[in-house]
Amino acid sequence: MAEKVVDLAERLSLFSDLWSPKVVARMNDYEIKVVKVQGEFVWHAHDDTDELFLVVDGELTVQLRDGDVTLGPGQLYVVPRGVEHCPVADGEVHALLIEPVGVVNTGDAGGPLTAGPDDSLT
């Protein structure tokens, strides 16, 4: 059986909305998502899971209460579970996220930037 190859650049070219992660693959109980971000998100935490950010294009800063982490293309950072953080990007950033199925992008904060599940790119 042939494996399904996921072309991240191709999938990212299919949408333009910001802060709305799209599932592109699944692995065990995890979803692999692509997202476009720009501007500042909301301060939030995920009490039950770590969160991985892998920058594909652009520069992303993950603000933390005890110091910021800035990532460029090909760099990743794992925010430990329960740690409050706020992603921010001056220009448009394309990133990959790996999260357990059902994780809400705004964590414990909720609000208007909360994205619904979107597996339209799988």
Rank of each mutant, 00 (worst) to 15 (best):
E31G: 01
E3D: 09
T61K: 09
E31V: 13
V101F: 00
L60W: 02
V101G: 03
A89R: 03
V24C: 03
W43F: 05
L64P: 09
R81T: 02
D118Y: 11
P112H: 09
E84G: 13
Q38L: 07
G107W: 07
A25Y: 08
M27I: 14
H94Q: 15
L18W: 01
V35H: 01
G67P: 07
W19S: 04
H44W: 03
L52A: 07
E59F: 01
A115H: 10
V23I: 12
L97M: 13
N28A: 14
D66W: 07
D66R: 14
G67H: 03
D7K: 12
P73L: 09
A9F: 02
L121R: 06
E84R: 14
G72P: 03
Q38N: 06
P73S: 14
H46T: 09
I98C: 12
G82W: 02
S120W: 03
L52G: 02
V5D: 00
F53K: 08
H44T: 10
G102T: 07
D68E: 12
V42D: 03
A109C: 02
C86Y: 05
D68A: 12
R81L: 07
G72N: 04
S13C: 06
G110K: 04
E10M: 07
V24R: 04
A2M: 14
N28C: 06
V55M: 00
F41Q: 04
K36M: 07
V103T: 15
A115C: 06
Y77K: 10
Q75M: 12
G116D: 13
D90C: 00
A115Q: 07
L64N: 10
V35I: 15
V104N: 02
P112F: 06
A95E: 07
G102H: 08
Q75K: 13
V5K: 12
V103I: 13
A109P: 00
A2D: 11
L54R: 01
F41P: 01
R81W: 01
V5A: 09
V5Y: 02
V104S: 11
L52Q: 04
P87D: 02
E99N: 05
E51C: 05
D57N: 15
G110D: 04
C86E: 03
D68P: 07
V24S: 02
A25F: 08
Q75E: 15
G111C: 08
V37A: 12
R26S: 01
R65G: 10
G102N: 02
V101S: 06
A109D: 00
I98A: 11
V79R: 05
F53Q: 01
P117Q: 01
M1E: 08
D50K: 11
P87C: 10
V24T: 07
V62Y: 03
D118C: 10
P73Q: 06
G110A: 04
V34C: 08
